[in-house]
């Protein structure tokens, strides 16, 4: 199957999962952002440019579905993909995906995503930016990073089998 179509199908599936089934994984109202993990994967395998476009598309879908703040997720997901795309290295993709580096990049991407998201989200309101970042941003990022252990171990195993 064409890689773009494959990515498109996975992205759509993940957007639907994130907006419907992901709540089943919520702990104290905190839900992991599966799309950040997917975007980090795309950034590490496809590079900064393509990942940014995918981030924009995925974020836009999410905005349309959530019925609130059209453009906010599109912007923050684009930025998240762009920032994590700095870690793209064609020769070390598999090694990065199967090591703790993937986890660290998800943490960084998730944190950056939360910071930009809440920066815009709290603009013009009485909601404290730092309070929301500490209360929700950090916890969501940590939960997302924990979930990213699953693909990390899968890639690590794949790498070991290949060797």
């Amino acid at each position: 199957m064409n890689r773009t179509i494959k990515y498109l199908l996975i992205s759509l599936l993940l957007v639907i999962v994130q907006t419907t089934i992901a709540r089943l994984l919520s702990l104290e109202g905190i839900t992991p952002d599966l799309l950040v993990v997917w975007l980090v994967y795309l950034a590490l395998t496809e590079g900064q440019l393509r990942a940014s476009v995918w981030g924009f598309g995925i974020g836009l879908c999410l905005d349309l579905i959530s019925g609130d703040f059209l453009g906010l997720s599109a912007l923050t997901k684009t930025l998240c993909a762009f920032v994590t795309g700095y870690f793209y290295n064609e020769n070390k993709t598999q090694m990065t995906l199967g090591s703790y580096r993937f986890l660290l990049i998800v943490l960084l991407g998730g944190l950056f995503h939360s910071l930009t998201y809440f920066l815009i989200f709290t603009l013009g309101t009485d909601i404290s930016f730092w309070r929301v970042v500490f209360q929700l941003g950090l916890t969501t990022t940590l939960y997302t990073a924990t979930v990213s252990l699953i693909p990390m171990f899968a890639f690590s195993r794949k790498l070991a089998l290949r060797a």
Binding site: Q48, L49, S52, V53, G55, F56, G59, L60, D63, F69, L70, G71, L72, A74, L75, T78, L79, F82, G85, I120
Partner: peptide, 21 residues
Amino acid sequence: FKEYFVLALLSVISLALLSLN
């Protein structure tokens, strides 16, 4: 600098969408 141009373009589109809510 194509990555930066694309980022700028996508950011501008996102911000335009934010203002067209």
